[in-house]
């Protein structure tokens, strides 16, 4: 629920789409106006990097426009990453 402020699965909003995020290079959705910081982050989103990012987005990528304090609870982060992985296989993402 907290992601939906800025993100949708299949289309870009204030934040980029989440379909395909696991395995994607950070800052690589075509046409999305990323911050220079995110474009230069040189990160591939894996379970590990997403977990680290979600702890504190601005600490991992200073200058990101994802100005969100973070998700402190490890289980909450694990659930979020699991959801993103599962959602990537959903009809909304694979059509």
């Amino acid at each position: 629920m907290r992601c939906q402020a800025c993100h949708a699965l299949a289309y870009d909003r204030v934040g980029p789409r989440h379909c395909g995020v696991v395995g994607r290079k950070a800052g690589s959705v075509a046409g999305f106006p990323y911050s220079p910081a995110m474009k230069k982050a040189n990160v591939v989103w894996t379970e590990k990097t997403l977990d680290r990012f979600l702890i504190s987005p601005l600490k991992m990528v200073p200058g990101t426009t994802m100005t969100y304090d973070g998700v402190p609870d490890p289980q909450d982060r694990a659930d979020l990453v699991a959801y993103l992985k599962q959602a990537g296989k959903s009809a909304e993402c694979v059509r």
Binding site: M1, R2, C3, Q4, A5, C6, Y68, D69
Partner: peptide, 10 residues
Amino acid sequence: QGAVSAYLGA
């Protein structure tokens, strides 16, 4: 609801 979460995180 999303906006509430976003401001809470900001």
